[in-house]
């Protein structure tokens, strides 16, 4: 059933977020430390095991792949609800600080990546593909 997939996704998210929150509290910071990342790892792990044992029928998968495909529309909605007006009226200090931080970050990407590059296999990069990067 589709809801099994959605439920599994939601469960991984909650466990990840609680773990991230506990990590943050342990380190004495008022923030969630990597909760989303932990949830992602958990989802990869759990679905991997379920798939191996044949407990992940297509209908269950659909509950996860639907939200996967909704990612870009959600990001567009996020962009539309950003405080863009404040960002660009914050004065030159804010503009330059933000721009310089971004530029340095982008410039360092090839430095840290090094020479070895393995591009993703060419394929349909559209958002509707059920699972980006899946090998089979």
């Amino acid at each position: 059933m589709v809801i099994y997939g959605v439920g599994l996704l939601a469960g991984c998210m909650l466990v990840g977020l609680v773990t991230g929150d506990v990590l943050g509290t342990l380190l004495g910071i008022d923030a969630n430390l990597g909760g989303v990342g932990i949830a992602m790892l958990l989802l990869i792990l759990v679905t991997g095991i379920l798939k191996q044992r044949g407990h992940l029928p297509e209908s269950t998968e659909q509950g996860i792949t639907f939200w996967n495909a909704m990612y870009i529309p959600i990001v567009v909605a996020m962009a539309a609800s950003q405080n863009v007006a404040a960002a660009f009226s914050g004065g030159l200090v804010a503009l330059l600080a933000g721009a310089l931080a971004m530029a340095l970050g982008l410039l360092l990407v090839p430095v840290l990546t090094g020479h070895r590059r393995e591009p993703l296999p060419s394929g349909d990069a559209s958002t509707t593909s059920p699972a980006p990067g899946r090998t089979h």
Binding site: L9, A10, C12, M13, G16, L17, V36, A39, M40, L41, L43, I44, L45, T47, G48, E61, I64, T65, F66, W67, N68, M70, Y71, P73, I74, V75, V76, A77, M78, A79, A80, S81, P130, A131, P132, G133, R134, T135
Partner: peptide, 25 residues
Amino acid sequence: LGLMGGGMLRDLAIIATAYGVRFQE
């Protein structure tokens, strides 16, 4: 748009993108 693009659904969708990722990478 605030609800659709808010942190809750955004994070759910981000986590869903991990489905099918190669752990090796």
